[in-house]
Simulated assay, not measured.
Amino acid sequence: MSILSIQNISKSYGNIKALNGVSFEVPQGAIFGVLGPNGSGKTTLLSIIVDVLKADNGNFLWFDQPSSPATRRKIGTLLETPNFYHYLSAFNNLKITNSISGRGNVTEINVVLEKVKLLERKNSRFSTYSLGMKQRLAIAGALLGEPKVLVLDEPTNGLDPVGIAEIRELIKELSIAGHTIIMASHLLDEVEKVCTHVAILKKGTLLTTGAVDDVLVDNDIVEISASDNNALLNILQSYNGTEQVILENGLVQIQLAKGTARPEEINAFCFSKGITLNHLVIKKKRLEAKFFELTNN
């Protein structure tokens, strides 16, 4: 079942095309990352699906229905930097959040503070919180009303490594508790470690979408060479499992599915074709390289 279906969404700001016909689906229970460099349209897209902005073209469905007050009550959002009163406690800040948003009730505040591991600090002033604690409090505010979905824009932005780790673990725990989470990020490492699914944007255009393990596949690369690299290049076109063969910097590179590179088999195959190798090295293709390929073509 799809929690969210986005269909051909476009949005422009004057001559700038922020989104260009973006379409994808978010499965129920997913931690779905909207990934892309700064300026790729991530925040604009999230703002549209929570009705902060209106799309120029296209539409979207929440729970197979058009957006409405009833569907919006099932969605908790965090699109901006946490904005709380510094001189008030966490509990009193969430009372104000509840009063303004109309989501949930005061009796839920202790529950959401427990979820984000701030219950013991509920009476502490906001000004005494670390950046990670402030972000967790903002997520607690989004959890008021027991939403089925959380929409988070760059939830680890500006945090130190400890704060980033805290938010990552919180997101995983909220997913296990039954929430579908949609989060924007420009950090590949964050998406790789947290998300189950991803959509990659570049300058408002959707490059690819799917399960993280499928989209950001970490291929094996084998570098080889011989006295005649052109002949080597030709015979490797028929090597079983080859996804790509190129000649680069005087070496032939074979790209294979992750975990399938067998150097002894490659060497034996080339020898059987009358070519003796003088160089053979296995390299792992980093996920960063895959992301770079997608966003820089």
Rank of each mutant, 00 (worst) to 15 (best):
L4N: 06
L4V: 08
I6R: 00
Q7N: 15
N8C: 02
N8W: 07
N8D: 13
I9L: 12
K11I: 04
S12V: 08
K17Y: 04
K17P: 09
N20L: 12
G21P: 00
V22E: 02
E25P: 13
V26C: 07
P27D: 09
I31M: 03
G33S: 11
N38D: 05
S40H: 07
K42I: 03
T43R: 03
T43G: 07
T44A: 09
S47N: 06
D51T: 09
V52I: 15
V52A: 14
V52M: 13
P66Y: 09
T71E: 09
T71V: 04
K74I: 12
K74R: 11
K74Q: 12
Y85C: 09
L94W: 03
I100C: 07
S101V: 10
R103Q: 10
V112I: 02
E120S: 14
E120R: 08
R121P: 02
K122R: 11
N123V: 06
R125E: 13
S127N: 14
S127E: 15
T128W: 11
T128F: 10
T128S: 12
G132T: 07
P147Y: 03
P147V: 04
K148T: 05
E154K: 04
E154Q: 07
G158A: 05
P161S: 00
A165K: 14
R168T: 11
R168F: 10
K172S: 15
G178A: 04
S185M: 08
H186Q: 13
H186L: 02
L187Y: 06
L188E: 08
E192W: 12
K193I: 13
C195T: 01
C195F: 03
T196K: 01
T196P: 01
H197Y: 03
I200G: 00
K202L: 05
G204V: 04
L207Q: 08
L207W: 03
E223I: 12
S225E: 05
A226H: 03
A226V: 07
S227F: 13
S227N: 15
A231K: 12
L233H: 07
L236F: 01
G241Q: 06
I246M: 09
E248T: 10
N249T: 08
N249V: 04
Q253P: 04
I254S: 06
A257F: 12
A257C: 15
G259V: 07
P263M: 10
F271K: 15
F271Q: 15
N278P: 06
H279R: 11
L280G: 00
I282F: 01
K283Q: 13
K284P: 01
L287H: 11
K290I: 10
K290E: 11
